[in-house]
């Protein structure tokens, strides 16, 4: 691919977006694979997803076009147009029309933007879930370093084997009265806490 220099030129100058997205993506990917810290992995994941978003947005670029919101003259309701002296109904005069193909070139492609809106939301959801997992891991093992985590998991496994208790500790089924106790404890706790608050109303 590099047999003539033009491609490199093209890549670095004319298609800088594509080049940058690849670099970002690789940074993210490397962080996800090689970093030992779970949070760093998640940062890598975010970079990775952002790179893909950048790529998609690059697809939507059209030279000399504006954002995909109708200009006043094409607006079906004229809600963008400068208020004129005529009464409200005049906005509906020109009504919705199918845009001419020459005018189509004037707007950027809306589809990649829509797709990326979805991808961003998915990324946020994944990140939130992953952070919750990290907290859970930290609660359980007291570390978010991958190698320490593995070591702790292994030692626990060995311990549980020697104790011939095959069910992991936290899977043990709590008895009913224990549950009740727990409930009452948490209720009382929330009472004591909310007592110090200025507005305890509405709290169940």
């Amino acid at each position: 691919m590099f047999e003539d220099g033009t491609i490199i030129n093209e890549l670095l100058i004319e298609r800088l977006n594509y080049f940058i997205y690849v670099v970002l993506l690789l940074i993210g990917l490397h962080a996800m694979i090689a970093k030992k810290n779970l949070i760093k992995k998640l940062i890598g994941m975010s970079i990775f997803q952002t790179a893909i978003i950048l790529f998609y947005v690059s697809i939507g670029v059209k030279e000399g076009s504006t954002i995909p919101v109708y200009l006043p003259e094409h607006d079906p309701h004229g809600s963008h147009s400068v208020p004129s002296d005529t009464n409200e109904t005049s906005h509906f005069d020109h009504g919705p029309v199918i845009l001419d193909s020459s005018l189509v070139k004037g707007y950027a492609n809306p589809l990649p933007h829509v797709l990326m809106l979805t991808a961003i939301v998915v990324g946020v959801a994944t990140l939130g879930l992953a952070l919750a997992l990290c907290q859970r891991i930290y609660q359980g093992y007291g570390t978010i370093e991958e190698d320490e985590l593995l070591a702790k998991m292994e030692s626990r496994e060995i311990r549980s084997k020697t104790l011939s208790v095959q069910i992991p500790k936290d899977q043990k089924l709590p008895k009913k009265d224990e549950l009740k106790k727990e409930k009452s404890r948490s209720v009382s706790k929330s009472k004591t806490l909310s007592a110090s608050k200025p507005k305890p109303k509405g709290k169940k």
């Binding site: 995909p68 109708y70 492609n109 589809l111």
Partner: peptide
């Protein structure tokens, strides 16, 4: 991607189909 009938349909017909000015 920009020339495809899908993309052109969004740009050209959104107003007619839905009367929404914001295509996105």
């Amino acid at each position: 991607a920009s020339k495809s009938p899908v993309s052109s349909h969004f740009i050209a017909n959104t107003g007619v189909d839905t009367e929404v000015p914001n295509m996105v």
